[in-house]
């Protein structure tokens, strides 16, 4: 039981990372119908921004750890979206209206270019951040096993849930969210309503990148090790989460993220760590066979 609870906690915090990235995949897919395969690289760049700011502020030596943490978080949330915006502006907007294959190939191209750029600028060696946030609560004990909930895990959950609630409210309640949903449902009519469609799409990339940057920061704090290549596997997992939840659905992306995190944690905990990726992707295969629209994806109800 205690072991189970521990894996549950681990899985949820891991799932938070996937969920935050998956939202970016699902929002971009929703609005322009493309899979932005470079989105995982935006996450990686977010982790680098957070690391550079944290180290720049002397997080390893100073007594200002909380300040440095907040600065790294805010900094990466401000800097990383510039990449998201530029990606859309440079690579995708010129191809709007061209065949899907062209944008898909471009996305793959950008997902090769971005890690190489980071490798050139930051070097190929792994970068480490010593644990800055240690300790936690011991919430259960039994059979010689202690269940701990670390401060970091609490921070991750609070941050993730806050962001997910905030973004859901933006999409559901604000004029910007309405404009995004309008572009998603009928881009021509959105323009006829006076919406600047290009700007709305760019803002969607910016919002997705903001969430991915937070995921990057969480990844950095959780594992303490990053390199230019982390975007690939995490990106693919988050994409899997988005498809599992139903691509295009915001709650689906969050649910999918947490599910993938839990599957990985339980598989690692009860079976083997080596095959955790296989477990996650196998679930995806099963869902696609039996429920192709994903868990929360719904087929279109449209009446003409």
């Amino acid at each position: 039981m205690e072991y189970f609870v521990q894996q549950l906690i681990n899985g949820l915090t891991l799932g938070a990372v996937y969920g935050l990235i998956a939202i970016g995949y699902t929002m971009v897919y929703g609005i322009i119908g493309m899979i932005n395969f470079a989105h995982g690289e935006i996450f990686m760049i977010g982790a680098f921004h957070a690391l550079i700011i944290a180290l720049g502020l002397g997080i390893t030596t100073g007594t200002w750890i909380p300040v440095a943490l907040v600065a790294a978080l805010v900094g990466t949330m401000l800097l990383t979206p510039i990449y998201g915006w530029a990606l859309e502006r440079v690579a995708y907007r010129p191809l709007r209206g061209s065949p899907r294959l062209a944008t898909l190939i471009t996305a793959i191209g950008m997902s090769i270019y971005l890690p190489n750029q980071v490798q050139l600028l930051q070097g190929a060696r792994i970068k480490t951040l010593p644990p800055v946030l240690q300790g936690g609560f011991e919430i259960m004990e039994g059979g010689g096993f202690v269940v701990t909930l670390s401060y970091l895990q609490i921070l991750i959950m609070v941050l993730t849930v806050t962001l997910m609630v905030a973004f859901t409210l933006i999409i559901e309640k604000t004029a910007l969210g309405r404009a995004q949903r309008a572009c998603e449902q009928d881009r021509t009519m959105a323009a006829l309503s006076g919406i600047n469609v290009d700007r709305t799409i760019a803002l969607t990339f910016v919002m997705g990148a903001t969430l991915a940057s937070v995921a990057g920061m969480i990844f950095l704090l959780r594992y303490g090790v990053i390199d230019f290549f982390i975007g690939f596997l995490v990106g693919i997992k988050a994409f899997t989460a988005a498809v599992l939840g139903g691509i295009g659905s915001l709650p689906g992306a969050m649910l999918g993220g947490f599910l993938i995190g839990l599957i990985e944690a339980f598989w690692s905990g009860y079976f083997t760590v080596e095959y955790k990726d296989v477990a996650a992707f196998s679930i995806l295969v099963l869902v696609l066979i039996f429920r192709p629209t994903g868990l929360l994806g719904k087929p279109d109800i449209e009446k003409v």
């Binding site: 949903r181 309008a182 449902q185 021509t188 309503s193 009446k303 003409v304």
Partner: peptide, 23 residues
């Protein structure tokens, strides 16, 4: 009011009217 009406299908009537008031 375009050909085919182009109502936003997944938005409520209220939200459709709000879309009309964007400008």
């Amino acid at each position: 009011s375009p050909e085919g009406r182009r109502i936003f299908p997944h938005m409520t009537v209220m939200e459709n009217l709000q879309m009309g008031a964007v400008t």
